[in-house]
């Protein structure tokens, strides 16, 4: 029993510490974003790395998500004789919920893991120390462009995911299963409000921010992570844990954001 309590207390302290570290990391990152000089090229480069390079996986997952929605939606709605609502069902599911969440999970897996590993390797090979010794703020140099890129890329990737998903639903629902083409688009026009698009946009921005915060801060403090340290194994363990933590946080925040925005 004392062992259990000691472990519990140790874990509690560790997670309090980690949250504090993340808070400090966020504070310095925001300050570094706001403080001049403003350099555009590093942010554009990160938009390419986080955004452009994720487009293929976003298109692929978006298409199949839309296709399965079309398939499931058509068969479910047909039971009630409401195939005409397929378009709005697919569009609303994607724009409000699946688009931002699945795009965020894909970006976490593709770019978030890379961000954590990259910064973690910079930490263990003393590159971050070298920056500090050169009087270059590592938050400004490494982290700020990633935050800007994450916040800009995520809504754009989500928009691509939504559009491709709607087209995927159209191909399966209308072209393969024979739902009415006019009804597919007109129900979408009628039922999708600006409020829905706004909700999806806010979620995408928040998720972009969360992905960078979690993956970058875990990489930045890889030497302080449980199971981390100054080795390759530490970086790999921390990267895995960052991806898991970011994914879980996205799903948690999705619920809270939905309950606030609805």
């Amino acid at each position: 029993m004392p062992d259990f309590l000691e472990k519990l207390g140790g874990n509690a302290l560790y997670y309090i510490n980690q949250t504090g570290r993340m808070g400090v990391f966020l504070f310095y990152s925001v300050i570094s974003i706001l403080r001049p000089p403003y350099k555009i090229f590093p942010a554009v480069r990160q938009i390419y790395v986080i955004g452009t390079l994720s487009i293929f996986v976003i298109i692929f997952t978006g298409a199949f998500t839309g296709m399965v929605l079309g398939l499931q939606g058509y068969h479910t709605l047909r039971k009630f004789g409401a195939e005409g609502l397929l378009g709005s069902a697919v569009a609303l599911s994607l724009i409000r919920e699946l688009g931002p969440v699945l795009a965020a999970l894909m970006v976490t897996g593709r770019a978030g893991s890379a961000i954590c590993a990259e910064i973690g390797i910079m930490r263990i090979s003393e590159q971050i120390d070298a920056l500090e010794c050169m009087a270059i703020d590592p938050h400004k140099f490494i982290v700020a462009p990633k935050f800007i890129a994450g916040i800009i890329s995520m809504p754009l990737l989500t928009a691509i995911f939504d559009v491709i998903g709607i087209l995927g639903g159209y191909v399966v629902g209308v072209k393969l299963l024979g739902a009415d083409e006019g009804a597919y688009f007109s129900s979408m026009y009628k039922d999708v409000d600006f409020q829905d698009v706004y909700m999806g946009f806010i979620k995408a921005v928040c998720f972009g921010f969360l992905i960078i915060l979690i993956t970058a801060s875990k990489g930045f403090y890889v030497h302080l992570e449980k199971g981390g340290g100054f080795g390759a194994e530490g970086v790999s363990y921390t990267t895995t844990s960052a991806v898991v933590m970011a994914s879980v946080t996205i799903l948690l925040f999705d619920y809270f954001l939905t309950s606030v925005l609805l």
């Binding site: 390797i121 910079m122 090979s125 003393e126 590159q127 120390d129 070298a130 010794c133 050169m134």
Partner: peptide, 11 residues
């Protein structure tokens, strides 16, 4: 100016 043990160059 610092020369680190492993040079700490940006790879």
């Amino acid at each position: 100016g610092v020369l680190f043990q492993n040079a700490a160059l940006f790879d």
